[in-house]
Amino acid sequence: MTPLLDVQTLSKNYGQRIGCKDVSFDLYPGEVMGIVGESGSGKSTLLNCLAGHLEPDHGKVLFDTKTDGLKDTVTMSEPERRMLGRTDWAFVHQHARDGLRMSVSAGGNVGERLMAVGARHYGDIRAQATDWLGRVEIREDRIDDRPTAFSGGMQQRLQIARNLVTGPRLVFMDEPTGGLDVSVQARLLDMIRELVRDLGLSAIIVTHDLAVVRLLADRLMVMKDGHVVETGLTDQVLDDPQHSYSQLLVSSVLQV
């Protein structure tokens, strides 16, 4: 089996400051990987380099494309990379308003990716949008409302529907549950878990919330100062952390 994503010695500097340094890992279809670390540890830089939003200074990001197999997304042409961005990849932002068009209805938000890849039948697009809104538990009669009229949790679910409608294979998530009420978080986590399982998605989730990765991620990567200090099975890293920083991170979580 070929990995879906094969990352090799990826580095990104901001001038003298290290964004992320020599990160290597692979991700197989159906796997969910968590990246944890405190603010400034380089996890968001890494995620943006992987998703093609930032150009790394060094390293490769090989993605298993449908047509050509493993291909370096860092050096591929921009049109090709952007095409991946709206077909095989999805990006769920922490703030839904960064990932949604706030002036466009929920239906239009979900339909955009379909239209971007050539769908031209209004009835079909609307039917698919309706179906996806249902899957993220947004009532059908809200389809013509703008996201500005939605609660934070609904906006986040809409963002997920908008991203998944074209059947991506790899989903990048940046703190997907950050800033939401705890009760809303739980429902969203459960939904993400089910979608990942039912659709066989691979996902990379950046978060500083260890409870989130325990529930969602199969594997875990711990970052500090731009470096990966520990990787492994999620529950193993959380229950038997080896690196001093991982131990500190795990022991710092407040118990409820």
Binding site: G232, L233, D235, Q236, D239, D240, Q242
Partner: peptide, 9 residues
């Protein structure tokens, strides 16, 4: 047990 399960290294 946890070692067998892979939970502990």
């Amino acid at each position: 047990m946890r070692m067998i399960y892979g939970n502990y290294l």
